[in-house]
C-alpha cells in the first residue's frame, strides 16, 4: 500500500527539488556536512535559473575549494593562492559582458590575498566575490586563519588564538564594505533551509547587479562550518557555529545600494 503511494508521488510531474545540472556528477571532495557543497550548489542554481551558463566565468581559489571547477559545470580558471580577484579583474576588464565571480576561502581571501581583495573592491571591479569563512585553514589540516576567533583552538594555536601574539580575527567583510567600490556587501550562512534561501537570494541579487552593469563589486560572505578542522560532527559543528561564529560575524546585509546598513 505504502509502496504504491510512493510510486504515485515519485514521478516527473511531482518533482519539486533536484540537483541542478550545472553541478557536475563528480563526487564532491568535501568532508561530510561541509557547507562548501551547498554554497557551490546555490551559485549554480542561480546561474541555471537565470540562464547564464554561457555567460559565466568562475575563479577557483587555493584551499579546500581548489577543485571547485570539478563540480561547477561552467568555464572556470584556477588561481594561485589569493590571486582570484586579480584573475577576475583581468577577465572582467576584457570580457565586460560576462558574469565573473571568484569563490574564495578565508585564508585565500583575507590573508595571502588581502591586497588583491581590497584593491579589486576599491577599484569597484564589477565582479562577485563569494567568501567562505570557516575560521580555519581546512585543506592544510586545520591551522589558524585570519578569521580564527580569539581563543579558538587550531593546529597552530593548540592553546587557543592568543590575540596579543597572533593578532585579532579579521572582519574583512566590514572592511571592504567601507570602500567606495563595493555596492552590495552581505554576510550569510548555509546551515539551515532558511539560511540557504537567504544566501541564494544574496547571490541572485549580486548577479543581477552585475548583469545590469551597475558598477561596483558585490561581496557575499558565507559563514560556514569546518567539521574536520573544528573536530565536531556536522550537526554539532553547525550548532557551534551559531553559538560562537555568529556573535562575532553577525549575519545580514552590511552594505546595500552602496550605503552602509545602520
Amino acid at each position: 500500500m505504502r509502496d504504491e503511494m510512493l510510486k504515485d508521488i515519485i514521478s516527473e510531474e511531482n518533482l519539486v527539488y533536484k540537483k541542478t545540472d550545472l553541478m557536475t556528477d563528480n563526487v564532491l571532495s568535501y568532508c561530510p556536512g561541509c557547507g562548501h557543497g551547498t554554497a557551490h550548489r546555490i551559485i549554480m542554481e542561480v546561474v541555471d535559473e537565470m540562464g547564464l551558463q554561457e555567460e559565466t566565468i568562475g575563479i577557483a581559489p587555493v584551499g579546500c575549494s581548489v577543485l571547485a571547477y570539478e563540480f561547477m559545470n561552467i568555464d572556470m580558471q584556477q588561481a594561485a593562492h589569493g590571486r582570484a580577484p586579480a584573475l577576475a579583474t583581468g577577465i572582467k576588464k576584457t570580457w565586460p559582458e560576462k558574469f565573473v565571480f571568484t569563490y574564495q576561502g578565508d585564508g585565500d581571501l583575507a590573508a595571502i590575498g588581502t591586497a588583491e581583495t581590497l584593491h579589486a573592491c576599491n577599484r569597484g571591479e564589477n565582479i562577485l566575490i563569494v567568501f567562505i569563512n570557516n575560521g580555519i585553514y581546512g585543506m592544510t589540516g586545520g591551522q589558524m586563519a585570519p578569521t580564527t576567533l580569539s581563543g579558538m583552538k587550531t593546529s597552530t594555536t593548540p592553546f587557543g588564538r592568543d590575540t596579543a601574539l597572533m593578532g585579532n580575527p579579521l572582519k574583512i567583510t566590514e572592511l571592504v564594505a567601507e570602500l567606495p567600490g563595493t555596492q552590495f556587501v552581505t554576510r550569510q550562512a548555509v546551515h539551515t533551509p532558511a539560511a540557504v534561501r537567504k544566501a541564494k537570494k544574496a547571490i541572485k541579487k549580486s548577479i543581477e547587479l552585475q548583469r545590469s552593469g551597475n558598477s561596483g563589486t558585490t561581496f557575499v560572505e558565507i559563514v560556514s562550518n569546518c567539521n574536520s578542522g573544528w573536530k565536531l560532527p556536522p550537526v554539532q559543528a553547525n550548532k557551534w557555529m551559531v553559538e560562537n561564529m555568529f556573535p562575532f560575524y553577525p549575519l545580514g546585509d552590511i552594505k546595500v545600494n552602496g550605503e552602509l546598513v545602520k
Partner: peptide
C-alpha cells in the same frame, strides 16, 4: 595594478580567456 603580483595574475585571467 596594485602590484606586480596582481599584474601578472590579471594577465593570467585575461590570457585564460
Amino acid at each position: 595594478a596594485e602590484s606586480e603580483v596582481a599584474s601578472i595574475n590579471m594577465v593570467y585571467g585575461a590570457a585564460g580567456s
